[in-house]
Simulated scan of single mutants.
Amino acid sequence: MKKDIFEIETHDNRDPNPWLALYLDNSIPINDTTKKVLMLDNDSRSARYLQPLLVFWSKITMFFIHILKFFFPKLFNSSKFLHIILAWGLKRFVSPNANLLIFRHFHVGSEILQFIAGNIKGIDIKTSPLKPKDFKDVKDDLFLNHDLNLFNFVINLNSKLKEKGETISYVKELDTSMISEDQFDHIKFPDKWTNILDLRSAIELFTPFYQLFLTANDFVRASNSLQLDETIAVYVSQILGTPGHLGLVNNKHPMVPRSTYSAAYNLVLHGLAAETLHEVLVNIKKENARDGIVVPKKGQEY
């Protein structure tokens, strides 16, 4: 991991590094390892030179796939084959930093949903955590299941709330047992000469394949799921009794869906929103540990 850009000794008043400034800034809560690799990812040659080309290529390709899918909606539909391509591409062409951000996202997202489910009284919601540890796990429809889990969680949660006449409300004693303080340095990702793609470039490259091999419903749902960031953040704010972290959410207003052509950029924002929300919960867990607060899990008594 390249670290010299994070040394204050490298700072030049006449040519300040924007990524050093953002790394040193603590106004936004975020896991330290995530912050480092994200800044390194932004500073990579791939982000500077390949990304603009891939953004252009992605939009043009998606336009023609959109037309193809209109006339032949069932052609090429294969989630299994898609995830074989994704696993192969992630392993061989994506940088270790970008892979870390991608893999970590599933862990973070799963823990946030588990936190919500574990802190709503009178409602029992089962979650399906996705915590991939290697590229073989990607082949099990990992990305598609991530989107399905999110929508199914919102549907199941709100149907049970309505059925029992309950609402999500402030919880004084929070259960944070499912939240991990993980720096995510236990998975070693390939670092060969071909592993050069930054996060945004990788997403731009893979998005047309996502569109091609998924049904129209699956692809549109995946794109729309990014705007559920606001929904999930509202749930957490109701539990915490504070709306402060809602200002960190940029993918908003899920009832007014955005164009699928902006899915790649919105996906990066989605990842950042999940990371910041997760870090808020990590900090709460640390504060409880310092104060000696131990909260029993739902259905348990201490």
Rank of each mutant, 00 (worst) to 15 (best):
K3R: 04
E7C: 10
I8A: 11
N13C: 06
N13K: 13
P18M: 07
Y23D: 04
L24A: 14
N26W: 07
S27G: 10
T33W: 09
T34V: 10
K35C: 05
L40A: 07
D41K: 09
R45W: 06
S46W: 04
A47Y: 14
F56T: 12
W57S: 15
S58T: 06
M62D: 01
M62W: 02
I65Q: 00
I65M: 00
F70C: 12
F71Q: 13
K74P: 03
L75H: 03
F76P: 01
S78L: 09
S79H: 00
K80L: 05
F81H: 15
I85S: 06
A87H: 10
V94Y: 06
V94E: 08
L101P: 08
R104A: 09
H107Q: 04
Q114V: 00
Q114A: 11
F115C: 15
I123C: 08
S128V: 15
P129S: 07
P132M: 06
F135C: 03
F135D: 00
K139M: 12
D140F: 07
D140W: 05
N145G: 00
H146Y: 15
D147P: 03
F151G: 01
N152L: 11
F153E: 02
V154F: 08
L157I: 09
L161C: 02
G165Q: 12
E166L: 15
E166N: 15
T167I: 11
Y170L: 14
M178Y: 12
M178S: 15
M178T: 15
S180C: 10
Q183D: 15
D185P: 01
H186T: 13
H186Y: 13
F189V: 04
P190W: 07
P190Q: 02
W193R: 09
T194E: 09
L197G: 02
L197W: 05
L199T: 02
S201Q: 10
A202Y: 14
A202N: 03
L205W: 14
L205I: 15
T207G: 01
F209P: 00
Y210N: 05
Q211E: 07
F213V: 00
L214G: 03
A216Y: 04
D218F: 03
R221P: 00
N224V: 02
E230Q: 11
V234Y: 11
S237L: 14
S237D: 12
L240E: 05
L240R: 03
T242P: 07
P243V: 10
G244N: 13
L246Q: 13
L248M: 08
V249L: 09
K252D: 07
P254I: 05
M255S: 13
M255G: 11
R258D: 13
S262N: 12
S262H: 14
A264D: 05
Y265M: 11
Y265V: 11
N266S: 08
E279F: 14
E279V: 09
L281G: 03
L281Y: 01
N283Y: 08
I284F: 00
E287T: 11
R290T: 12
D291L: 15
G292M: 05
I293Y: 12
I293G: 12
V294H: 14
V295H: 04
V295P: 03
G299M: 09
E301H: 03
E301L: 09
